[in-house]
């Protein structure tokens, strides 16, 4: 019964779950041999990993919105940093709204450029990333800003409710909104339609520009939420805090079975993908794998998973 149910799950998610189990088993074997403990299977460790995964998960959730359209957002690194800096600089009650507002503005700029100028999103968001970086460098004067995150941000990022990290609730909340939007509203249908064939969506009367802008705004909002949580997690905002989130977020989305060309993908896949990447990084670092080996394994895992289920159609043309 359980096995048939398991086989009914999407192929990418099934494989990703399998790899997660494999990672945990490998790690546990390692700790059993070296320390005689099963540290990787303890609830504390797993919950802690989920907490860390929620930052990447939030970024990946947003990234999925634009990848579903067949676009990409390379401005993630500095959107995360900018939101964190805006939130810590504002402080007080308005810290979180200030961070989200920064994300909203960046998303609007990205969306307008891609929807109206028809500049490929890859190059436009890359330019926007450099501009935000420039603005933040001017703002901070090249030094780390001397501001701290507010207590609310720290509670959201590091606090626990009933033993479960609050960051996980934020991720779940944002995720449920996105799932609702994708599966229960017209907007969700429009996103998949545009990802499959934009011109067909346009001819069916969909306001494609509005959908593009809205998706880029959602992406930036998710990234800025991750930035706010990250600032709360490390009690401050600093330059380069978002650099480690761009490529892993793309990888998480793609590992989860979303087509990088758009039109196909599930939120569950992205969640599993984000957890897989965080676990892989964590287990490898606990196993004291040097950075070189970690990078090689990381790349190899992504390629081999995609070779198993991400291959394109055989016929060309």
């Amino acid at each position: 019964m359980l096995i048939t149910k398991f086989l009914l799950i999407d192929k990418p998610i099934r494989y990703a779950l399998g790899i997660i189990v494999l990672i945990l088993l490998t790690g546990t074997t390692y700790t059993l041999v070296t320390q005689g403990t099963m540290a990787f299977l303890s609830p504390t460790y797993l919950l802690q990993q989920l907490q860390v995964a929620s930052f990447l998960g939030l970024v990946a959730t947003g990234m999925m919105m634009v990848i579903l359209l067949g676009h990409i957002d390379l401005s993630i690194p500095w959107t995360v940093t900018c939101a964190a800096m805006a939130a810590t600089a504002m402080g007080g009650e308005w810290a979180i709204p200030a961070g989200l507002a920064a994300g909203l503005i960046i998303g609007l700029v990205n969306g307008l450029g891609v929807a109206f100028l028809r500049v490929p999103s890859m190059i436009f968001t890359l330019g926007v990333n450099t501009v935000i970086q420039g603005l933040m460098v001017v703002y901070t004067g090249g030094f780390a800003p001397q501001t701290h995150s507010t207590p609310i941000m720290e509670t959201l990022a590091t606090g626990h409710l009933l033993g479960i990290p609050n960051a996980l609730f934020v991720w779940a909340f944002v995720g449920s909104l996105i799932v609702f939007m994708l599966t229960r509203t017209a907007m969700g249908r429009y996103i998949f339609a545009i990802g499959n064939r934009e011109v067909a969506a346009y001819l069916s009367g969909i306001n494609t520009r509005l959908v593009l802008i809205a998706s880029f705004v959602m992406c930036s909002l998710c990234a800025s939420m991750a930035g706010i949580l990250l600032a709360g997690y490390s009690t401050k905002a600093y330059q380069g805090m978002g650099d480690l989130y761009l490529l892993p977020a793309i990888a998480a989305v793609v590992i989860g079975g979303t087509n990088i060309l758009g039109g196909k993908g599930t939120f569950t896949g992205t969640v599993v993908g984000a957890i897989l990447i965080v676990l892989l990084q964590s287990v490898l670092s606990v196993m004291q794998m040097p950075e070189a080996g970690r990078q090689v394994i990381y790349g190899t895992v992504i390629i081999s998973m995609l070779l198993v289920y991400g291959r394109g159609e055989k016929k060309e043309g």
């Binding site: 990888a251 793609v254 990088i260 950075e291 070189a292 090689v296 992504i302 390629i303 070779l307 394109g312």
Partner: peptide, 23 residues
């Protein structure tokens, strides 16, 4: 031969090459 998208393939091989460089 893998019939994969270049952007994601080179993203992953980039990590592998970088790992080799660090090695």
């Amino acid at each position: 031969f893998g019939r994969l998208q270049p952007i994601i393939v080179t993203l992953a091989t980039g990590a592998v090459f970088m790992g080799l460089a660090l090695f």
